[in-house]
């Protein structure tokens, strides 16, 4: 299989990886970058577990061919905590019980972070912003409480 070198920025660090141009970014992040916080859920864009923020937009990394990640700026769950302190959204998920088995959590947290950054992109509110992220444990209400808690803390900070 022909692998070509691909460079991108991952959580603020320049990375150079070898990947097939059509390989899903999800696999590249996990294998080449050890960024295993990004989860494989369905492989067909239905579940949101593989969500990352690429060039400022939330996207499912199972549906991004590696060649399209060239020169991109990518944020994954590993990039949120700073100096050993959780991001307010992570902290809120912890406190409300928004995280249980953990498979959906990285994608769910990134979707919530993106919603708090750009609420205008989801006129239907948090329910719309998280529509693409499935959770089979929590029943969602603890997740929505986490989003609201984080939002109020970040607004008053």
């Amino acid at each position: 299989m022909i692998h070509t070198p691909i460079q991108f920025s991952l959580n603020g660090e320049k990375r150079s990886v070898a990947a097939h141009p059509m390989e899903p970014l999800l696999d590249v992040l996990r294998r080449e970058c050890g960024a295993t916080g990004t989860k494989y859920g369905c492989g067909e864009g239905e579940c949101g577990a593989c969500s990352v923020i690429i060039n400022g937009e939330l996207a499912m990394s199972c549906m991004i061919p590696a060649c399209q990640a060239a020169d991109a700026t990518i944020e994954t769950i590993e990039g949120l905590a700073r100096d050993g302190e959780l991001h307010p959204v992570q902290q809120a998920f912890l406190e409300t019980g928004g995280a249980q088995c953990g498979i959906c959590t990285p994608g769910m947290v990134l979707a919530a972070v993106q919603y708090i950054r750009h609420p205008e992109r989801s006129p239907g509110g948090a329910a719309e912003a998280l529509e693409g992220n499935l959770c089979r444990c929590t029943g969602y209400s603890a997740i929505f409480r986490a989003v609201e808690l984080a939002r109020s803390r970040m607004e008053s900070a």
Binding site: G45, S51, E57, L58, A59, M60, M63, I64, R121, E131
Partner: peptide, 9 residues
Amino acid sequence: TGALQIQNR
């Protein structure tokens, strides 16, 4: 159509 993640791409 789909979720935000789909609409973004």
